[in-house]
Amino acid sequence: MRKLGWFLLGLLGVALAQDALVGVKVAGGWVRFPARPDMTAAFLALENQSEKPFRLVGVKSEVAERVEVHETFQEMRDGKMVMGMRPVASLEVPPGGRLELRPGGYHLMLIGLKRPLQVGEKVKLVLVFQGGLRLPVDLPVEMR
């Protein structure tokens, strides 16, 4: 029992050390269940625990041909309120700050899904930051 305790403490230590090493972490997120089989969106929050900014410059996923960072916007056109999306080249997570990708705001577009996704399964994404840092994350597929 005590051995297990040390082992868990060790794991925690490794996890903490990695967080400290990386400085940025994913604080929750989900992949939206795909209402059409070939594309969907993913949402997540990033927390920067370091004193330097992190810039998300790309995302890859084994389940999608490509992943783009998009922004949902709202504006008047022809006197009518219109919503749309546009690609965003990169996103900054400020030092000690938080960046949230959520419905109606920034989101990841998973384009060209290679297989059907089931609610409840985990999807692997790799977040690529400026400077080459690659942060893997598993996000659950959810109906929300």
């Binding site: 594309m39 919503m83 999306m85």
Partner: peptide, 10 residues
């Protein structure tokens, strides 16, 4: 439109 992964599903 069906290729709309944010606004429409929301």
């Amino acid at each position: 439109f069906t290729r709309c992964p944010d606004v429409c599903p929301t």
